[in-house]
């Protein structure tokens, strides 16, 4: 047979064609990558650059200042609030996501709509709505007083409580969505198998359903916690200046003191902490599990 010369020439042509196709396909991501580079990576680089620039060139002064007690207190508040909101959003979100995942399709769609509805409303509008509800003579306090449950109005806003309520409300959908997605993908035969093997509904729930929903739970925790760390609007409005978050320190440095170096250093620290947490969680449970791999 005399296929060898013709065969190898063909092989080369196939390779060229294949490489061309692959390049064409991969070139589709260029606009997306360019955008990310332009609006995310470049500013971050600039931020980092500014955080180490003083009046006389390179300096670490901005970072040194962050060791001050007032900044550490802010960092503590930020973490406390973020952890509290995350824990509460699990406590409220898990049962709700479970209910939606087990409901009949039409009821599930309705409940999901209710969960998503707040997301479609402006963040600012929702915060002001909470102000109306939670103020001294607001809806909540007048109800409680009318029903005789309390004598004097509760302090529900301009403090830690109000900030927690507001942030919880805003974060809840971000906990419910990944939880729901992961619960929906749990085959009902798993629960049937557990029951068949002798597990009561409660044991089957804790020993089979909850472990299988963990990827969604971890995804929810990460999203909510990371969003909380950098949250600004709600603490600023509902905290009334008494709940000081890291993001508010950044804002103060820029607007009051026009100190871009200090603000940049604060930003870099927040970014580093966030990345550090993501890395630690990824090491602990594996990112592929969270984003839906095996």
């Amino acid at each position: 047979m005399t296929v060898s010369t013709g065969g190898s020439a063909n092989l080369g042509a196939y390779r060229v064609a294949e490489r061309r196709e692959r390049w064409l396909l991969q070139s589709l991501v260029v606009p997306g990558l360019a955008l990310i580079g332009l609006i995310a990576l470049a500013p971050i680089g600039w931020l980092f650059w500014m955080s180490v620039q003083g009046s006389s060139g390179f300096t670490l002064d901005h970072y040194q200042r962050l060791l001050d007690e007032s900044y550490l207190r802010t960092l503590k508040t930020t973490f406390e609030l973020s952890i509290l909101v995350t824990v509460l959003s699990i406590a409220l979100g898990y049962p709700l996501a479970y209910l939606i995942s087990q409901a009949r399709p039409r009821l599930a769609a309705l409940l999901m709509l209710l969960v998503l509805f707040p997301v479609w409303t402006s963040l600012l509008v929702r915060c002001y709505a909470w102000l109306v509800l939670l103020q001294r003579r607001g809806v909540v306090n007048s109800w409680l007083q009318d029903m005789g449950i309390i004598d004097a109005p509760l302090k529900l806003m301009h403090n830690f409580t109000g900030t927690t309520i507001g942030m919880l409300h805003i974060m809840l959908p971000f906990m419910i969505l990944p939880l729901y997605a992961s619960m929906r993908s749990i085959d009902r035969d798993y629960m049937r198998a557990a029951a068949n093997l002798g597990a009561s509904p409660v044991r089957a729930f804790w020993q089979v359903f909850v472990p299988l929903s963990l990827p969604g739970l971890f995804a929810g925790i990460i999203i909510v916690f990371v969003l909380c760390l950098g949250f600004y609007v709600t603490p600023a409005l509902l905290g009334g200046g008494r709940v000081y978050m890291w993001s508010m320190q950044i804002e103060r440095n820029v607007t009051y003191y026009a100190d871009w170096g200090a603000a940049s250093a604060l930003g870099v620290v927040l970014l580093a902490l966030t990345l550090g947490i993501l890395w630690a969680v990824g090491r602990l449970i594996g990112f592929d599990r969270i984003v839906g791999g095996k």
Binding site: D187, D189, A199, V208, L212
Partner: peptide
């Protein structure tokens, strides 16, 4: 009797082996 009190073995079509 509820399923968990029937004491019967069952092999499911998709096996339903617990992945965790």
């Amino acid at each position: 009797a509820p399923p968990h009190k029937r004491d019967v073995g069952m092999v499911f079509q998709n096996y339903a082996l617990f992945p965790h």
